[in-house]
């Protein structure tokens, strides 16, 4: 009997797809959560596409497991839809109600064809309600996932951008660190710095922490790691930009920064680096104005 209902609903849907589509799009358009992110034409197109896929899937008869292969087409379409909507700037509830708003037109159709209030129609409604709930949750989850992927990518880009390695002079490179130095950041700083040392054949690297707001034990650990990796490569590392408060914190916390060369200002570090690489800066007094 359950099977009969399913196939009959599938047939129903096929026969009155136009009607449902109009009704459904209508529902979506008057949804108060709707933003202007998705234009009506594309809304209509994706609704129509989904109805065909949906009707094909229910015809195969598996209404219990949305992870089954019969539903692959529907899942694929929904995750693509969520991903594009996440990028377009739709809200999560707007995206999820794409599916939830199908309930009303579908149930109206079932009631109309099977007769409102009888066992067959209420049974069908309960079953389809479950199916649409599952698909709605799936859509919501996909939306969330695409958002997370966007955030992850942005984080990665930001990390890369926030750690430029500058060649200061022949044999001297510098990294001005801005922001908190956590372990993910340290990894990127180390990779970029060490690669720059190899590429430019630099003997001295300057790590400037003027833009690092606080130095705690963890941050100091990360600095020490970076310095020792530089040394293993055969280059010197000078840490500069140690503000007075930071110097006090380091002493207060009892952090042992071992034999790391530290300088208050980046200019001091540059002077030291030039000296170590055999350069000297001479001011030409005759040109002084």
């Amino acid at each position: 009997m359950a099977n009969d209902t399913m196939t009959s609903v599938a047939t129903l849907m096929r026969d009155s797809q136009k009607e449902i589509l109009a009704d459904w799009v209508d529902q979506q358009l008057k949804d108060p959560a709707r933003t202007q992110a998705v234009p009506e034409s594309s809304l209509r197109a994706s609704s129509n596409e989904f109805l065909s896929i949906f009707q094909e899937a229910i015809q195969k008869g598996n209404l219990d497991n949305m992870a089954a292969p019969e539903w692959e087409g529907a899942r694929k379409m929904l995750s693509e839809l969520s991903a594009s909507r996440a990028l377009q700037g739709s809200t999560p509830s707007e995206t999820a109600s794409f599916i939830f708003s199908l309930k009303e037109p579908l149930f109206a159709l079932i009631n109309k064809q099977l007769g409102a209030g009888n066992i067959a129609s209420s049974e069908a409604i309960v079953r389809y309600s479950k199916v649409l709930d599952q698909l709605g949750l799936y859509t919501f989850e996909s939306f969330q996932k695409s958002r997370e992927a966007v955030i992850r990518r942005q984080q990665k880009d930001m990390l890369e951008m926030s750690t430029p390695v500058i060649k200061l002079w022949e044999g001297v490179v510098a990294v001005p660190l801005i922001g908190t130095l956590d372990s993910a950041r340290t990894q990127i700083v180390m990779e970029n710095l060490l690669q720059a040392i190899v590429d430019t054949n630099s003997k001295v690297a300057i790590l400037d922490i003027t833009g690092v707001p606080t130095v705690d034990t963890q941050t100091a650990q990360h600095l020490i790691k970076t310095v020792s990796a530089t040394r293993l490569m055969g280059a010197d590392c000078i840490v500069s930009g140690i503000r007075p408060q930071i110097a006090q914190t380091i002493v207060h916390l009892g952090i042992d920064i071992q034999d790391i060369t530290t300088k208050a200002l980046m200019s001091d570090a540059i002077r030291e680096a030039m000296e170590r690489t055999g350069w000297s800066v001479i001011r030409n007094t005759s040109q002084e104005s």
Partner: peptide, 15 residues
Amino acid sequence: MQPAIAITMTELGIS
């Protein structure tokens, strides 16, 4: 020493 090795050794704790 390659950068990847220097980073790995530091993480491992070999100085």
